[in-house]
């Protein structure tokens, strides 16, 4: 992970700024970031510092007021609607609040993107969807609705939906939020397994430093620390843990006193 352009770069953004309508303060502030092929990158930082917003801008869900998002060097904002649609199929995202379609069954949540975005037959869509359900081990719940399955299974389904279109980049937004430690562990293992099998570029936004530490030990991931819409530091895990920056120092050690206590959520 780094800032700049290189051949391995799959998803990047330059000088991004994003402000919600009606808000006086920008959530993302002149931020540049790039993600290389097969790379695992953690975006950590306190809640309300713009992690979710940054992921949504990178996934093309939110349009930045300034700056540009590039997929394999192609600027998203300058693509036609059709080209943009094709490009964004290669970027998938899982959501903090699941984002699963509650009017569709577990299986339909997976066949829906396939039917919408590909020209596959119904049977091919079903086969791919069932394969993804097997991969995340929730195939026995295919006829249930998302609200009928547990939080952990919803996270798994979110991951399956991200996988079903075989994306090159997967963005995970707080994948272990609201889960017990055991289920969190299963989700972490699943994310690592998926990354190793598919070799996707993976960007994981989380406030859970333990999650970042566990995964980065197994995948040699890098960590970016996001604070007030800007990346304060991009480094290895050990560099982040040894950082003397007062905000990072307080966050990594979980101290109650420090600059973070005075920060308002964005």
């Amino acid at each position: 992970m780094g800032i700049g352009v290189n051949e391995n770069e799959v998803l990047s953004a330059k000088d991004l700024s994003f402000t919600f309508s009606g808000a006086s303060k920008s959530v993302i502030h002149h931020l540049s970031i790039s993600l290389n092929r097969s790379e695992v990158f953690f975006l950590v930082g306190p809640s309300g510092m713009g992690k979710t917003t940054l992921l949504k801008v990178l996934a093309g869900i939110l349009i930045p007021q300034s700056g540009e998002v590039f997929f394999q060097g192609a600027p998203l904002n300058q693509l036609s609607r059709r080209e943009r649609r094709i490009v964004l199929q290669r970027v998938a995202m899982t959501f903090q609040r699941s984002g699963l379609f509650d009017s569709l069954s577990v299986l339909e949540n997976l066949t829906f993107p396939l039917k919408e975005l590909t020209h596959l037959s119904n049977q091919q869509c079903l086969d791919l969807a069932r394969k993804a359900l097997h991969q995340v081990e929730i195939f026995e719940s295919e006829s249930k609705f998302p609200y009928e399955i547990s939080g952990g299974m919803q996270k798994r389904l979110g991951i399956a939906r991200a996988l079903v279109l075989q994306p090159e980049v997967i963005l995970y937004d707080d994948p272990t939020a609201g889960l017990d430690p055991v289920t969190s562990r299963h989700i972490i293992d699943l994310i690592i397994q998926v990354q190793k099998e598919k070799n996707n570029a993976t960007l994981i936004a989380t406030s859970d430093l333990d999650l970042a530490l566990q995964v980065s030990r197994k995948t040699s991931a890098k960590i970016g620390f996001l604070f007030e819409g800007q990346l304060l530091q991009v480094s290895t895990v050990s560099d982040l843990l040894n950082s003397n920056h007062p905000v990072i120092y307080q966050f990594t050690r979980g101290l109650s006193e420090g600059p973070l206590s005075a920060v308002d959520d964005l």
Binding site: I61, L88, M93, F95, R97, S98, E116, L117
Partner: peptide, 17 residues
């Protein structure tokens, strides 16, 4: 409204719908 709160609208946008 519920689809917005539960990020289903974002999921649609992510699928370019």
């Amino acid at each position: 409204g519920t689809m917005k709160v539960t990020e289903q609208l974002d999921a649609l946008k992510m699928l370019s719908i």
